[in-house]
Design a protein around this nucleic acid. Structure first.
Lengths: 331, 331
DNA sequence: CCACTGACACAAACCGATTTGCAAAGGAGC
DNA sequence: GCTCCTTTGCAAATCGGTTTGTGTCAGTGG
């Protein structure tokens, strides 16, 4: 292949017009078998492959999706991304990926850029923008699946995990073990707050004690968890258990406990969220709440394809995925 | 925003021609300040954002790159991907991502699809195709950075890690500890074989004993490592140490050792490769060889941008990244 | 006063496909 | 033999931008 071929090259090679080549390839109009054969032969010989840019410009469909995540290096997302990619790949879609670092500004830029590239749909994790703003940016008709909670009116399809179920389970488990003093390390404010809310609701319902200074906010990283726990465990009265908005934070909390010679789970129970692969590998093994990453990705793929097939007029859908407590050693 | 605006809308809103709008926005020809102001104002008011498809079709540049990896869910890649995305993002590039599962056929398809989408460059991990075939698929002029070894003639830019250095270090370390019987669990054949080769070279140079049935091949996963180790540790004579082509395999090997009640590192030393985050978290902590994922990604970004700036005529470049042994508990 | 120059804006061609309207040819029915 | 379809293929318009060639106008130098 010296240079890339155009449809006109194929046409002249086969002795027909570009129109006929297009029809032969797309099948949108009948083409005589003999002609079609000549065309296919020419395609083969020239190794012709249509320019997707031109096709997309004309058809207004790009066969491309956008995946927007806070941080692909955060181990929860790759699993989800993988399932998403697999799901849409079969349908002939490729995926553009962008990181936002949880920053609303970054989110906005990513969205705008994706829209300018005319993606056919967007999967958006952890929306920090309101769906009203979202719709202002992407327009009313572009399929968007948001994973996780949203604030404000819902104007997108939604994949949510039933976080409160797993969290309730975990709180009840601690309660049954006799724990009364509870702390929670949440992610950055404005994001994932619903996990904190679910936690507070469950703790309150069981009459447990949650001091204000036992609640921390921090980035969703191991370092963040470490820092938050260090300050949280500093006071003269400590909680007997700490739950965390994700596993990385929980691992950071365990780092802190180790640094402070607090033994887990005897002196401090720790419960994470997500059940990333590493959770089963740390010492002590992390008790956590499953967040079915790969199921989430697959569900996003499914919903997005469905939405694309349905069109924008069909009512918004919400799908709820299960979570549950996984008992290991840390609690 | 009711519907997306075209340049013609902006032009009529500002009372000029589309040409002038284009010039005003791109700055490729001078536009009178007053006119420019009117145009900018119209752009603002209509929230106009040029259609990248149309622009790309005309300019033959998409500002889009391709990242092709065996499996984004494999924890080595997200770190690398993140650094790559960050690096090219600054330059205004977005990235399409595809998984190949190490399958040559999948690789080919991914490449073809990326080419059809007219990406400006490709980062390719673990090429299973020869670079000659690669060039046949992508053409002679498209920038490609390959990470890891290649077979056959080199016809791309290359980012390699000095695997043999770290591996040599590790073998020497084991030798100095008195170990003489060595095994190796490699990834799927045809891929990563150079790690096995480096291992064999180093072991041979130090006169160590590597039985044929102490060498396993398996997918780059924990399960793969487990299965390989189970069969490898089954014989009547066992190696005193096993080195692995990546950390996931090594963790699987440790799983197997645990299942067989072989204690690490006393009865069996295990050394991984990559130094993924989890390596420091497992018990016993995994001794491994660093593979600077994030540096790799950043280097790819740098090289690709450089190549795009340089053009296809500049000679191919190779950049070598360091590796080194990280001593922990498993060896 | 005229030729020349630079600044500025526009019309038209182009990127590479798809799609619509139309014409020519061949076959069926009367 | 003539009309009416159906089949088959082409020319031209279109998607939404960018780029090139051209024309106009005001200012400058001789």
């Amino acid at each position: 292949m010296v240079t890339s071929r155009r449809i006109a090259d194929v046409a002249s090679e086969a002795g027909v017009s570009p129109t006929t080549v297009s029809h032969a390839l797309s099948g949108r109009r009948p083409v005589a078998p003999a002609t079609r054969a000549r065309i296919m032969d020419a395609v083969e010989r020239l190794d012709y492959r249509p320019d997707r840019l031109a096709t997309s410009l004309r058809t207004q469909r790009t066969q491309t999706l956008a995946l927007i995540v806070p941080d692909i290096a955060n181990p929860y997302y790759p699993a989800s991304a993988r399932a998403l990619l697999d799901g849409v790949n079969e349908a002939g879609f490729m995926t553009l990926i962008a990181n936002t670092d949880g920053d609303p500004e970054g989110e906005r830029e990513a969205l705008q850029e994706m829209v300018a590239r005319r993606v056919d749909g967007i999967v958006m994790h952890s929306l920090a923008t309101s769906t009203a703003d979202l719709r202002r940016i992407v327009g009313p008709d572009l399929p968007v699946v948001v994973v996780g909670g949203v604030s404000g009116l819902i104007a997108t399809d939604l994949v949510v995990t039933a976080d409160s179920v797993g969290i309730g389970e975990a709180v009840k488990y601690l309660h049954d073990k006799g724990v009364r003093d509870l702390g929670f390390v949440d992610g950055t404010e404005g994001n994932g707050m619903h996990r904190l809310a679910a936690f507070l609701g469950a703790a309150h319902a069981l009459g447990m004690n949650v001091q204000e200074d036992w609640i921390g906010h921090t980035p969703f990283t191991r370092e963040g968890g470490f820092a938050a726990a260090m300050s949280l465990l500093h006071g003269d009265r400590r909680p007997a258990a700490i739950m965390c908005a994700n596993d990385l934070i929980a691992i950071g909390v365990m780092d802190a406990a180790r640094a402070l010679s607090i033994s887990i789970p005897q002196d401090l129970a720790v419960i994470g969220f997500d059940d990333i692969e590493t959770a089963a590998l740390v010492t002590p093994q992390l008790t956590t709440i499953t967040n079915p990453a790969s199921l989430t990705g697959a569900t996003c793929a499914e919903m997005l394809l469905e939405r694309i097939a349905l069109g924008a007029d069909a009512p918004y859908m919400t799908r709820v995925l299960p979570t549950s407590l996984v008992l290991r050693e840390s609690a």
